[in-house]
Design a protein around this nucleic acid. Structure first.
Lengths: 345, 345
DNA sequence: TTGAAAGCGCTAACAA
DNA sequence: TTGTTAGCGCTTTCAA
């Protein structure tokens, strides 16, 4: 066996190893999988042959025998968002402990891409997948196919009833309510909600929570403004800040559906000389690490991202167990108050 | 075929499909792979059977037949760093176009984790892997095994000569030189270099370039300070800023080996009331998106991250071609001057 | 403790 | 245009 110019001589199989060691292939397999006791003499011979032949197991043949691929998938809406990066780390860490690798797919909210990845995962016979679904209007046939392939599915941020699967979400209505209650308690009544593409479901709920807070405070929910970023790029997000600055009736506060949006807007305000929170207060969502370290630390609704990733991965592994019952975990959001709403204290 | 309680009835195989359609398995295979012409009548029958039986191909059996897995790996040093996130996006986009999925592994610079991932990729018979190697002191036997498995390898940020493989890197000495030349040209002579764990190789080179710039300006390279973050977390990075602030002879400028480090330090300075660039000038490295949008936009040495990812993936696919010769691409860094060194202009 | 042999689902060479 | 058949590398009975 040797490497040369990128081509590879035929890889050794357990058959080759067995031949060199003078044993049967069953013995090699048993040693590799620790399924039976092997006499020390035999073991030594086989292990030497394994090394001499540079044996590399072929996981495909294992899978063919019916065991599942030690792979889990994560289909995220928006890779660059630190929220998903942190979730991915949580998933990866749990997966690694379980001896699995992570296949990462980003959809940017496009259903077609989601379908492509789901199909790939299904034919790979992955153990399961954590999926932040693009909004499909209820057409989840592609997920059925993945399920059919034997994969466990954990949905991120979908409603419990929507698709029969395990799931994890935050109470987004409550989160939006917390954010806007906080702003109202500081005396703000002119508030704009800032959204963007991706995660339509969550955004809708968060702003519904915002409206609820207005109502409960005796304010007109209809007076809540609404603005959306054109895309997921940092520049498009920052542009929202500029658009808010130009608004004829500039609001005294904004509630952003994500921290990335909020931080981009804050950066724009700062460059335009608009003071946060004196000229405009900002509340974000997610509590990504950057919020605490921003020049004006950002008030935000906190979600435990890394833990959500871990929980999703654990749910996934538990789903593989025989007597599993689907469950749905709802994380309670928490308001984190920092200077972007209350100033230096 | 039906889903129930997480268990799965036996999946249909092409044999089942063939039986239902009343054709041979070869015909089904040919239709699936578009390898031969199929008469319209036969096609219709088979396609109906495919649907009726919810057929999902088993990629494992394909791989067993000798074709490679349509998977490429990316082994990154530090997942949360937007630098790697952007590289990953570049890789993913090229991979997806080629019909491949991405396996993402993060090592945090630990060789053991790198080995674990490399072994997993090898037994998966992946097409190839893009690897930002943890520093191993020249022990690259695990990479040999991956190579041996038939995978193409593209190294990120390793020296050309170090390991015989395709590779991509930036000219880090030049980058460091650009950064510090810029600071010197602004009159700074008291400069501290800020590093951290991960990417030792690159950091060493960048600071060697810094020393070179000092020397060429007739300054003592030995007077360059050096400080390192304790870990990769945002808090540990931000702490460096506090340590610099407390320095008895506070430098008038710092050169950070990455933008994440620089932005964390800038945030800390801002909260401590230290003005950038008046009290202290900052140059970062990589030019991640956040630099342009920071409240004080960050001067930095730019690397085209997304393009590096794309280039790495393309290199990987070209390596799979028969008459391939290893190549190494060096990206030239470019200085981007923003307000963190020259102030508002 | 070890071995022989039957497949897992699919592709491809060959035959019809 | 379609079919038959021999494996790919491995795990897993069952037998020795």
């Amino acid at each position: 066996v040797e490497v040369s110019g990128g081509t590879v001589a035929k890889l050794a199989t357990i058959r080759d190893v067995a031949a060199l060691a003078g044993v049967s292939i069953a013995t090699v397999s048993n040693l590799l999988n620790d399924t039976k006791h092997i006499s020390p003499v035999t073991r030594a011979k086989v292990e030497q042959a394994l090394i001499d032949l540079h044996f590399i197991p072929n996981s495909a043949s294992r899978i063919m025998r019916g065991s599942r691929n030690t792979v889990i998938g994560f289909i995220a809406l928006d890779a660059p968002d630190p929220f998903f990066v942190n979730v991915a780390r949580g998933i990866e860490d749990v997966a690694r402990e379980a001896g699995c690798v992570l296949v990462l797919g980003t959809t940017d909210g496009q259903v077609e891409r989601e379908k492509q990845y789901v199909e790939a995962l299904a034919s790979m016979r992955v153990l399961g997948a954590v999926i932040a679904p693009a909004y499909t209007g209820g057409d989840e046939r592609h997920l059925d196919r993945l399920r059919l392939s034997g994969a466990a599915i954990v949905l991120l941020g979908a409603y419990e009833s929507e698709y029969v699967a395990c799931g994890i979400s935050g109470d987004d209505v409550r989160g939006g309510q917390l954010a806007v209650e906080h702003l109202i308690s500081l005396g703000h009544t002119s508030i704009v909600c800032v959204g963007g593409p991706g995660g339509e479901r969550q955004i809708k709920d968060r702003f519904a929570g915002a409206a609820l807070a207005m109502e409960q405070a005796g304010l007109d929910p209809g007076s809540l403004g609404r603005l959306d970023a054109a895309g997921v790029s940092i520049a498009e997000r920052a542009d929202v800040g500029a658009r808010i600055a130009e608004l004829p009736d500039r609001p005294t506060a904004i509630f952003c559906a994500s921290d990335t949006l909020a931080l981009a807007a804050a950066g724009t305000f700062s460059r335009l000389g608009i003071k946060v929170p004196d000229d405009i207060a900002i509340v974000g969502y997610n509590n990504i690490d950057q919020t605490a370290l921003a020049p004006v630390p950002l008030s935000t609704v906190a979600l435990p991202q890394y833990e959500i990733g871990q929980a999703a991965a654990r749910m996934l592994f538990s789903e593989a167990e025989p007597d599993h019952v689907h469950s749905h975990t709802v994380f309670e959001p928490e308001l984190v108050v920092r200077e972007s709403t209350v100033g230096r204290t």
